[in-house]
Amino acid sequence: MAVLFAVDDLESLEETIAVLSDAATMNALSEADAVLARGEGENQSSLAAAMRERRARG
Rank of each mutant, 00 (worst) to 15 (best):
M1L: 15
M1A: 15
M1Q: 11
M1D: 15
M1R: 05
A2E: 02
A2C: 06
A2M: 02
A2S: 15
A2K: 05
A2L: 09
A2R: 08
V3E: 09
V3P: 05
L4W: 09
L4V: 08
L4M: 08
L4F: 02
L4E: 03
L4Q: 04
F5I: 03
F5A: 07
F5S: 04
F5Q: 03
V7K: 00
V7L: 01
V7R: 00
D8L: 10
D8C: 11
D8Q: 06
D9H: 10
D9W: 09
L10F: 14
L10Y: 08
L10P: 06
E11T: 03
E11L: 09
E11Y: 04
E11A: 09
E11K: 13
S12G: 03
S12I: 00
L13N: 03
E14A: 01
E14G: 00
E14P: 05
E14R: 01
E15I: 10
E15N: 15
E15P: 14
T16Q: 05
I17Q: 13
I17G: 07
A18M: 10
V19L: 14
L20K: 13
L20S: 06
L20Y: 05
L20I: 11
S21D: 15
S21C: 14
S21L: 15
S21K: 08
D22L: 12
D22T: 14
D22Y: 11
A23L: 10
A24R: 12
A24L: 12
A24K: 15
T25L: 13
T25W: 04
M26W: 02
M26V: 15
M26D: 04
N27Q: 15
N27K: 15
N27A: 09
N27L: 10
A28R: 15
A28N: 06
A28S: 13
L29Y: 00
L29P: 12
L29E: 08
S30P: 03
S30Y: 04
S30A: 09
E31T: 06
E31M: 04
E31Q: 04
E31W: 01
E31F: 02
A32Y: 04
D33R: 07
D33S: 12
A34E: 09
A34T: 10
A34D: 15
A34G: 09
V35I: 06
V35R: 01
L36I: 14
L36F: 00
L36R: 11
L36D: 11
A37F: 11
A37Y: 05
A37W: 03
A37Q: 14
A37S: 12
R38H: 13
R38N: 09
G39P: 09
G39E: 12
E40I: 08
G41K: 10
G41E: 02
G41A: 07
G41Q: 06
E42P: 07
E42C: 09
N43V: 02
N43Y: 00
N43I: 06
Q44V: 11
Q44E: 05
Q44A: 08
Q44S: 02
S45K: 05
S46N: 08
S46P: 00
L47N: 11
L47V: 10
L47K: 11
A48C: 03
A48F: 07
A49P: 07
A49D: 15
A50M: 01
M51S: 06
M51W: 02
M51R: 11
M51T: 04
R52I: 00
E53Y: 02
E53W: 01
E53A: 13
R54L: 14
R54F: 06
R54K: 14
R54Y: 03
R54N: 07
R55G: 07
R55M: 13
A56V: 02
R57N: 11
G58F: 14
G58E: 13
